[in-house]
Computed example of a mutant assay.
Amino acid sequence: MTRKHDEVRSRNETFVERVTTRIWEEQPSSDNPYLAESLRCHGYDLIELAEKRSFTDVLYLLFRGELPSKEQSQILQTLMIGLSSPGPRHPATRAAMNTGIGKTDPLHILPISLMTLGGTVSDAGVIEEAIRFLRKQRRADPETVATELLAESSRPEQEDWILAPGFGSLYGEVDPFCNKLANTLLEFPGAGQALQWGSEFAASLKGQNLGWLRAGVAAAVFSDLGFHPRTGGGLYQLINAPGLLAQGLEMANKPITAMPFIKDENYIIER
């Protein structure tokens, strides 16, 4: 039997001689060109940034190419604290805890839990879509959008109802902490149009036991701060990472009996 192969063709592409970046600049050492004498992030000396600015400011600088205003830094830092850990009920945290107590290499705790956090229902995997949703609807009346979406959808029998990216129910109810976090952020001078629109939209859904989800609050702030939609998911993972790692490491030195063992009757095999 003779196999036929597609004709091999040249792509006629010319590759660059070296990698270029607008983000980072390294001044080589006079003694060893492979070592950096000084580092600059978007033109700012890194040591000077370390002396005068916060980590939040530098994070913003890395992705936006400019330092944030006081108001922008304040609202981003508040979001980062509010979302610093998904909490032990969250599947990503459970993954971190199971990884830790299973005596997996501690270096693997964070990557494993972040993959779990990448879900497309209400976590990092939906951030890009949520930012685009908020930007698309920013000139529409929130109550009208809510009415139209409710008319087009129906409540699932078992799963949570995700009406729009970043908005829905958690265990069948409105997430009270997300609502508090969004209201806190709204009080800051840096609160923008997306956060305000999202708050009004969430209020219109309250009668259906729907509202803000963690991804929605993050997406609104990211949108107002000018982050590109494709950046949002990774930023969300970064913000949640400290809590995931801490919870996983907490279990790393405990015996396996410190986590519950699921009984046979709790396993469901679908045929």
Rank of each mutant, 00 (worst) to 15 (best):
I23C: 06
L244S: 14
L163P: 09
E129Q: 06
E270T: 12
K136D: 15
L46S: 03
V16M: 00
Q196L: 15
I269D: 05
A92D: 02
V174P: 04
L59F: 10
P165V: 10
I131T: 07
L249W: 07
Q158S: 08
P255Q: 08
M80R: 04
I127P: 03
F261W: 12
S30F: 02
A215E: 05
E129T: 05
Q77T: 09
G118M: 09
T2Q: 14
L170D: 06
T99C: 15
L238K: 05
E187G: 02
L134W: 03
F55D: 06
A219I: 11
P242L: 13
P28F: 01
E173C: 15
A220S: 02
M251N: 02
A218H: 00
P255W: 04
T104I: 10
F177D: 07
W161F: 11
I23G: 00
I101W: 11
H228D: 15
E17Q: 14
E129K: 08
Q237E: 05
E26I: 04
E17C: 04
F227D: 15
L245E: 05
R139L: 12
E143I: 12
Q158E: 04
G82S: 09
A203P: 03
F177A: 08
P106M: 01
S73D: 12
P28L: 03
V221K: 09
S10H: 09
V145L: 09
P156N: 10
T184I: 14
R94V: 01
R271G: 07
L186Y: 08
L245P: 02
P88N: 11
N209D: 07
A146H: 06
A50K: 13
I75M: 10
M1N: 10
P165S: 13
K180C: 13
P242D: 01
L35Q: 13
T257F: 05
S85Q: 01
T120V: 15
T20I: 04
G119R: 01
R138C: 08
R22W: 12
E187Y: 02
Q193I: 04
